[in-house]
Amino acid sequence: MSETALLIALLAAATARGAAPLVLAALGGLFAERSGIVDIGLEGKMLAAAFGAAATAAVTGSAWAGLGAGVAASVLVSLVHGFACITHNGNQVVSGMALNITLSGLTAALGYAWFHEGGQTPLLGPGARFAPIELPGAAALAGVPGVGTAYREVVSGHNLLVYFAAAIVPVAAWIVYRTRFGLRLRAVGESPDAVDTAGISVSVTRYRALVMSGVLCGVSGAYLSIAHHASFIRDMSAGKGYLALAALIFGQWRPVPTLGACLLFAFADALQARLQGTPLPLLGVVPVQLIQAIPYILTVCLLAGFVGRAVAPRAIGIPYLKER
């Protein structure tokens, strides 16, 4: 029994670790998309941040400097997206794709040339990354059956950025639904001309949303390279940006359901990693690849209206022209 409990606890912990970068990137995408800017570039921003963070942490030896550099790199990419889509009314999907492709090449090329380790950055020492934190009381509660295991394995023992990801969900929900900026953000994504008529700049609101997106994707990318792993590996985001986008759509562009989608997707991944060919009751051996494809299949089904309905912000993807 306690072995099953431990297994469940380990699965839950793996889910939390897997969900953290998804939550951060998806919430970043939420700000951008709620303001009416399609954010396919989550992947590229995460890669930029992962590389920036690992490279800086490797050189300075400081995790915080790495985090700062990662966020800066990601915000910069976000601003390029804004320059193309907001200032020059470019196609938002094309711009996002362009940034993803550019960053996938750029991080690998720079990593290869600067560190001579085949596109990787040097392995980071203990001070240069965010180490797991033992929460107070984990040792004291260890003797308590059930609660002790759950607390030690699931709640305690993650790195700082996982807790940040958990804390940012209510904060993001509060910003989007309870602040003046959040109201403008949602309005600008639904009906930018109304916002413009009210004397609020559509461009500035959208740029602010993209900066938010850049910051959150930056933390997400830094999580990958200086918290979860200890170096940058080429293309290390490995589709997580697109998965976050899928989670955002699956969560219908709302913070808490998006968190749910991220947890679901991360759970599928954790399960897949643990199963690896173990036969399941009734189903037999499920191919790992099928479980990996589940998030994408679910998102397609949702978009098609087979399960629920995903309604995008009304002005999404449409450049705002002040006068026609």
Binding site: G90, Q92, V94, A98, L99, N100, A108, A109, G119
Partner: peptide, 18 residues
């Protein structure tokens, strides 16, 4: 590395498209 070509490709999409 050949990643430079990917960079050029991405930048071309950015300038031509976006």
């Amino acid at each position: 590395t050949r990643d430079m070509v990917v960079v050029i490709q991405g930048l071309i999409i950015l300038v031509c498209g976006a």
